[in-house]
Amino acid sequence: MFHWLEKNPFLFSVGVFLVIAFAGLVEILPNFAEASRPVVGLKPYTVLELAGKEVYKKDHCIACHSQLIRPFKAETDRYGQYSLSGEYAYDRPFLWGSKRTGPDLHRVGNYRTTDWHENHMWDPKSVVPQSIMPAYQHMFTNIADIDTAYAEALTVKTVFDTPYDTPNGVKLGTLDEAKAAALEEAKAIAADMKNQDVKDAVANGQIPEIVAIIAYLNRLK
């Protein structure tokens, strides 16, 4: 019956490959799809948080900080619940990192606050005396790029169907709406901060990078 197959070794090899590959995919893909579904209650990043994420990438925080808590007792004691893959569903790209010169940041929003980040970014040694982290004072003057962050959100909404503009979800809207929402969010954060220049900038409708990155770090829970 399959004699003809044995007479065509190349075709036979391709056939064997296809059968085995299909069996493998049937085993692997459902598991992948299941694990990468967003965890219950996960919301996409707001535009301000995305702008903060851009700052995180730009200043290369990932070089020293990871965002992945492994299921070891030593780590869960210090950082909290171990990470689940579904928590990164809206991270494009995820920022797991591979080196911890500083601590893990995946749940930093649970145990640090706006004013702590403000002190820490201005002068890390003022709160952690042995810290070797450099100061990031330029974040207090650089203005965050909200337009790019909006473009990013709009892209993932369009291309990957990230659930923006859903009922009870994160509202994206038009660029102007998004900018207004980001400014509102920034005002709430600036209210908890002490730096007068930052407060003034936000009052004038500008969002310094420090506000964006604090929004992003507070969101990491």
Partner: peptide
């Protein structure tokens, strides 16, 4: 002074 987060489960 400011805000201290909850350390409920820690």
């Amino acid at each position: 002074i400011g805000k201290m987060p909850s350390f409920k489960t820690m």
